[in-house]
Design a protein around this nucleic acid. Structure first.
Length: 293
DNA sequence: CGGCGTCAAGCTATC
DNA sequence: GATAGCTTGACGCCG
């Protein structure tokens, strides 16, 4: 059985968890506080909307607390917003909604440049603190492995060595294949070395399958969500989206093509999965897939 | 006041 | 050897 969700904002309400500002805007701490409160209010509105419409997954915007890991962030955000985050986590659990976050393409923990790698770790610790405050064991930090630096084995090893000491982050972290650098097979190997799960992005996989059919890719990634010492089994996560025909390969369409949806349904069979629908149309794409909103 | 270019960060692909 | 594009909203500047 599949459960579906969508990222960052709801176009129907409307509400967003991803309102941001420019770096220069951090100087006005009151404005930043107000911005974060808007994002948290957006999260609450979306949690309630989701519960009312049978949508059990949501990905929060990475700018939930904009520039949280930047040295110029103007106040102690955990002190200021921690209680709200804990309350929203409790609400999400009460409503049965699973939350995730997805650090962007500038986060490069395997970079050979120490500053780049260290800034990436700072961003992970921000997300880890968010999820610790939210307090749900099934929260997920979704991450691409980043650049390959013209030496794939060395880079994969460096990725593992950089992340292995980050035990708090690894509690939530899952690796996802991308559309041109790291295939499903490669992220499963690296995730395995770290003892963390792997996510098949069906759309990316179609662009860089590395010789695997979608069903083979699911056979590799779904079992990585099994139980491990001290932790219960988690529902596997997947990503699904379609190509925007007007744009570059890899650009997400407004809705999901029926053929892409049916291909995933077929490859998944009767297995369980939580599927994040990455469409520009956000929750509207779920409606188009037949979810009764 | 509406529209458009720029803004923290890093990589890959393409010319 | 340079640069667009990945994602998205905010804001400054221009008319």
């Amino acid at each position: 059985m599949m459960r579906l969700g969508y990222p960052t904002q709801n176009l129907t309400i409307p509400a967003s968890t991803n309102r941001s500002c420019r770096l220069a805007g951090l100087a006005d701490a009151d404005k930043v506080r107000a911005l974060v409160r808007e994002n948290l209010a957006g999260l609450e509105a979306i949690l309630r909307w989701n519960a009312g419409h049978g949508v059990p997954l949501f990905r929060m915007g990475q700018a939930l607390i904009p520039f949280a890991s930047h040295p110029e962030f103007p106040y102690d955000w955990e002190d200021e917003h921690g209680e709200d985050l804990s309350r929203l986590g409790e609400l999400a659990r009460t409503l049965g909604i699973r939350l995730s976050m997805h650090p962007g393409q500038y986060i490069q923990p395997a970079s050979p440049r120490p500053g780049v790698s260290e800034r990436g770790l700072g961003e992970f610790r921000y997300v880890e603190r968010i999820f610790d405050l939210i307090g749900s064991e099934d929260s997920v930090i979704v991450l691409h492995m980043g650049g390959a630096y013209e030496d794939r084995p060395t880079t994969a090893t460096r990725f593992v060595e950089t992340m292995r000491p980050e035990s708090g982050v690894l509690e939530y972290l899952a690796l996802e294949n991308d559309e041109r650098v790291w295939t499903v097979q490669e992220i499963v190997a690296t995730a395995g070395a770290l003892g963390i799960p792997a996510i098949t992005d069906a759309f990316h996989h179609g662009l860089d399958p590395g010789g695997l059919k979608l069903e083979d890719a699911l056979d590799l990634t779904l079992p990585t969500w099994g139980a491990r010492p001290g932790r219960s089994e988690r529902r596997p996560k997947l990503h699904l989206s379609s190509q925007d025909g007007e744009k570059q390969p890899g650009a997400h369409a407004y809705l999901v093509e029926e053929a892409d949806w049916l291909a995933l349904v077929k490859a998944l069979g009767n297995r369980e999965a939580d599927v994040m629908i990455e469409a520009k149309g956000k929750e509207r794409a779920l409606g188009a897939l037949g979810v009764d909103l």
